[in-house]
Simulated assay, not measured.
Amino acid sequence: MDFLERLVEFLNRQNYYATVVSPILVDGNSIAIMVMPSNDYEHYFDGSYRQGYAFQIMTKHTDQLTAYHTIIDIANLLENIDDIPSQNGSYEFENIKITTDPNVIGKDDKYYIYAAQFSADLFIKPKKE
Rank of each mutant, 00 (worst) to 15 (best):
M1T: 15
M1R: 10
D2F: 08
D2N: 15
L4Y: 00
E5S: 15
E5V: 11
E5D: 15
R6M: 14
L7D: 02
L7K: 03
L7Q: 03
V8T: 13
V8K: 13
E9I: 05
F10T: 12
F10Q: 12
L11M: 15
L11C: 15
Q14I: 07
Q14M: 10
Q14N: 06
Y16T: 10
Y16L: 14
Y16K: 12
Y16P: 10
Y17K: 02
T19M: 08
T19G: 08
S22N: 09
S22R: 04
S22D: 06
P23D: 12
P23Q: 11
P23Y: 05
I24D: 14
L25M: 04
L25P: 06
V26M: 13
V26T: 15
D27A: 15
D27C: 05
D27T: 12
N29K: 04
S30D: 02
A32P: 11
I33M: 07
M34E: 15
M34S: 15
M34I: 05
M34A: 14
V35L: 05
M36W: 11
M36N: 15
S38V: 09
S38R: 07
D40A: 11
H43L: 07
Y44C: 11
Y44G: 12
F45A: 15
F45P: 10
F45H: 10
S48D: 10
S48W: 03
Y49N: 09
Y49V: 07
Y49F: 13
R50D: 11
G52N: 04
F55V: 00
Q56D: 09
Q56V: 07
Q56K: 11
I57R: 02
T59F: 03
T59P: 02
H61F: 03
T62G: 04
T62C: 00
D63P: 00
Q64A: 08
T66N: 09
T66D: 05
Y68T: 06
Y68P: 02
Y68C: 01
H69K: 09
T70R: 03
T70A: 09
I72E: 06
I72Y: 00
I72A: 05
D73L: 04
D73Q: 13
A75P: 01
A75T: 13
N76I: 03
N76G: 08
N76Y: 03
L78M: 08
N80H: 09
I81M: 07
I81V: 10
D82M: 08
D83T: 06
P85H: 05
P85S: 13
S86M: 11
N88M: 07
N88Q: 09
G89E: 08
Y91G: 02
Y91M: 01
Y91P: 07
E92H: 11
F93M: 08
E94P: 06
N95D: 14
N95R: 14
N95S: 14
I96V: 06
K97V: 01
K97P: 03
I98D: 00
I98S: 03
T99R: 04
T100S: 10
T100F: 01
D101C: 02
P102N: 02
P102A: 06
N103Q: 10
I105L: 07
G106N: 09
K107Q: 05
D108A: 06
D109E: 10
K110Q: 07
I113E: 04
I113A: 06
I113R: 09
Y114V: 01
Y114R: 07
A115G: 00
A115D: 03
A115H: 00
A116L: 01
Q117I: 10
Q117P: 07
S119Q: 11
A120P: 06
D121M: 05
L122Y: 00
L122G: 01
F123Y: 14
I124V: 14
P126K: 00
K127I: 06
